[in-house]
């Protein structure tokens, strides 16, 4: 579904990704682990064209994103990105936050999407907060709304950028439960995370990034129980 080949990304002189290759198949959950600044976020942002890449190639559904005829807005509609800082729209109610994408990007009728949006809110137990503004919700509730806001676009692939890192420890659980739920129902996800136990449980593949290099990739058992590289071993030791 998504294929990165030797992707290089630089910000001025700073090389953030130095030739990263990665494949993601339908219904697969891949977790990206690594220290802050290792390039996890950049990799996700390149994958939905929020950032342009400097070398290498990204292929989505067999179509190379370097082709000038590719419409980034269509790519982003199919590849949703959820942020560490939620980024809910503060001037819109919870329901309107969810409706914005379907109504203005997909040009669907508001009345048609409304029921779907309410069903999504039901799924995260926040249906009664539909008319509240984001300021009124806790961090965990805001992040869950941000996730269903992305789901309302019916994306083929969900990218999650350290979605629990800005949360109070007591609120992390509810967000991870939602992600587990999504994984169980077959949602394809690429997840940058610092939650090692979660990564161990939920992912089919785990990839370790270090300073823009994908050091190693394997099943959770391989990575967590018998890492092949010294760098991976040291990193896991530190976060444990």
């Amino acid at each position: 579904m998504l294929e990165l080949n030797d992707v290089v990304k630089r910000f001025d002189d700073n090389e953030v990704l130095s030739g990263v290759s990665l494949q993601l198949h339908r219904h697969e959950v891949v977790c990206l682990i690594g220290a802050s600044g290792s390039g996890k976020s950049t990799l996700l942002r390149c994958s939905n064209m929020l950032e342009d890449i400097d070398a290498g190639s990204i292929t989505l559904f067999g179509q190379g994103l370097e082709d000038r005829r590719i419409d980034p807005n269509l790519v982003r509609r199919h590849v949703a990105l959820v942020f560490q800082s939620f980024n809910l729209f503060p001037h819109l109610s919870v329901l309107d936050n969810i409706l914005l994408g379907p109504v203005y990007a997909m040009k669907r009728k508001r009345a048609d999407v409304r029921d779907e949006a309410l069903a999504l809110l039901d799924r995260i137990g926040l249906r009664d907060r539909a008319n509240d503004f984001p300021d009124r919700l806790s961090g965990g509730q805001q992040q869950r709304v941000a996730i269903v806001r992305s789901l309302a676009m019916q994306p083929s692939l969900l990218l999650l950028d350290e979605v629990t890192s800005a949360l109070d420890p007591t609120l992390v659980g509810e967000v991870l439960d939602l992600l587990r739920d999504l994984a169980a129902s077959g949602t394809t996800m690429l997840i940058a995370t610092h939650e090692m136990n979660f990564a161990k449980d939920v992912s089919h593949q785990v990839a370790y990034l270090d300073k823009g290099v994908l050091v190693e990739k394997g099943t959770p058992e391989q990575i967590f129980n018998s890492p092949q590289h010294e760098a991976t071993r040291i990193f896991l030791e530190r976060v444990r």
């Binding site: 939905n48 929020l50 807005n73 269509l74 982003r76 509609r77 949703a80 990105l81 942020f83 800082s85 980024n87 809910l88 729209f89 914005l100 994408g101 203005y104 990007a105 997909m106 941000a146 806001r149 992305s150 676009m153």
Partner: peptide, 17 residues
């Protein structure tokens, strides 16, 4: 905040929307 822009673009909204 820039994050608002990123979030809107990530939903597939055009620059004008």
């Amino acid at each position: 905040p820039h994050g608002q822009l990123l979030a809107a673009r990530s939903l597939g909204l055009s620059p004008t929307s």
